[in-house]
Design a protein around this nucleic acid. Structure first.
Lengths: 154, 154
DNA sequence: AGCATATTGACAACATGTTGTCATAATGCA
DNA sequence: TGCATTATGACAACATGTTGTCAATATGCT
């Protein structure tokens, strides 16, 4: 029954999940010295580009507003970011990095750069490209399937 | 600063994390009709091969005993598995699937097979192989780095 | 046999994500 | 203008993972 194609795909899925677990774990270790976590780092990444409301950030990360809300509150509590009034919306405050948050983020990005070069050293350049294309296609297919079955979310 | 190799690697990491999120989400939707979740499905997968203690399962999945313990208790509560005395260890009970759990798992695996074939349809066979190799190498490198820096865990 | 060490399960605290529900603010259309 | 719809934030419940701690059980070595 199980087609050869299907078997290979199952193996790929397993590799993806394993890799994601490891990457998140290392990401957390990398971020800890800067007072950040992998998840908060992601949020900082969004607001470093441009100030954004909670809902904006959630959309940028394909996550729920509620989850991002808690991360944002944590960042504010830790002095990494602050809420600023939004001239275009009374409730949707804008989250912006503090100077300290900016410094942490930039230091962390520098560490991440070194880490990425270490990881890339073991892999053929062209294979990385192929892997990216495969995963991008996979994400695209999965997203397409989602929008067809459920028309609304949140 | 950021090398080209590093940039490509960062992109790959982002693709991996995105793909893992989607896969887990779809996995949960797939498992729900069978009274399972993606996480419990994984645990069932281990004990379908061979009865195992909580610690055995945790090692097989590279997860913490504590996390697996809760999933196992959930499976037992839902009638998917039962604890059986371990002749070789007074405390380390063995987790084994019930007939109902076995039926759910097998039905789910059949659904998964169809899903995998759908996903594989969009992708060149040889590219899947390359992607798997890249991710396997990545996992290997990440695991190697972990064992060198931290000698003990748990 | 006896004791140090490792393994295991239980319990607690926490980080990260989800969904559901509600109230308020913004928007668009008759 | 007024009203239905949408967008947003807040709060709660839950699923899944982590780490830390403790007690009980095995195991191995002298």
């Amino acid at each position: 029954m199980g087609s050869l194609q299907g078997e290979r795909m199952s193996g790929l899925v397993w590799n993806v999940l394993q890799a994601a677990n490891r990457l998140t774990e290392v990401g957390n270790r990398l971020a800890a010295p800067f007072g950040l976590t992998a998840a908060r780092w992601q949020v900082m990444g969004v607001i470093m580009m441009q100030e954004a409301s909670i809902a904006d950030i959630a959309r940028a990360l394909s996550q729920s507003r509620q989850g991002v809300q808690r991360l944002a509150d944590d960042l504010v509590r830790d002095g990494m970011a602050v809420y600023r009034p939004n001239p275009r919306h009374a409730r949707a405050k804008l989250l912006v990095p503090t100077p300290g948050g900016t410094a942490s983020y930039q230091g962390l990005m520098q560490e991440q750069g070194k880490w990425m070069e270490d990881l890339a050293r073991d892999l053929p350049v062209e294979d990385i490209g192929v892997a990216r294309a495969v995963l991008a296609q996979l994400v695209s297919t999965l997203d397409a399937g989602r929008s067809s079955s459920t028309a609304d979310e949140d």
